[in-house]
Amino acid sequence: MFSEFLQYLFTGITIGATYALIALGFTLIYNASHVINFAQGEFLMIGGMATVSLIGLGFPLPVAMVGAILLAALMGIALQRFAIAPAKQADPVTLIIITIGAAIFIRGIAQLVWGRGYHSMPNFSGDVPVRIGGAVVNTQTFWVVGIAAVLVAGLVFFFTKTMIGKAILATSMNKVAARLVGIKTDMVLMLAFLLSAVLGSIAGIIVAPITFTSYDIGIMLGLKGFVAAALGGLGSGMGAIVGGLTLGIVEAMTAGYISSDYKDAAAFGVIILVLFFMPRGLMGARVVERV
């Protein structure tokens, strides 16, 4: 019985850590601009697909990964420069719609370049799973959870200890005031897109050995990541992590103990409950309306 529970728990943590990383990407851009970037899933897809195709060209895995992350970073900057920046006077809703359009565009290009098939990627460290208390854990799980933890720690450090991180936070709180104290808010926004593209592509690379990757994988994972971000409270880094893990574990437990038919229903049920009683999410900021 306990081994079953452990198995479901590990499954949930693996997928939950991925959701958390995607949610963090949403959070970053939301914090800097109040835009929900629906192209976040596409960064994830670029990460996985570019890595697979670079490996196919004969590059070793680490080089391929770095190449894919660079490509995603470029796309993040391009998205901000060519799609978001020209419409900077528009309100967030318009910008959100622009990101949806950008997502469809990126997906279309990816479909042309890489085709419609699914691609597999080798595990980072061998196919032999590890046994913990009767449960079987894929070695890739450790990579996913480990890398997610490192990234989260890095982000916390970045936002609390570095000038640039604080500048991003300041911009999100009050753009005009930030500009008055000498922060280049345009640069901050670009930086936010770059960071979240890097986060997304890393998430895409580390889950590709588990989920496979294809040109349209970003739709589903991106949506789940957004849900995780909303669950935890949009704009809260800690909330993104808690939301992602909660979502993953609820899904896995439902699939294991009840039926996978109800997996999504249970996950979304939890979200409805949380948002009903805590409209700002589990860890969302207190709403203070200044008059």
Binding site: Q7, T11, A252, A255, S260
Partner: peptide
């Protein structure tokens, strides 16, 4: 008799039931 949705990325939970 277990099922998975076409968008699922991990079927370990369902297969664990079968294995046990």
């Amino acid at each position: 008799d277990v099922t998975y949705s076409p968008s699922d990325t991990d079927m370990t939970a369902q297969l664990t039931r079968i294995r046990n």
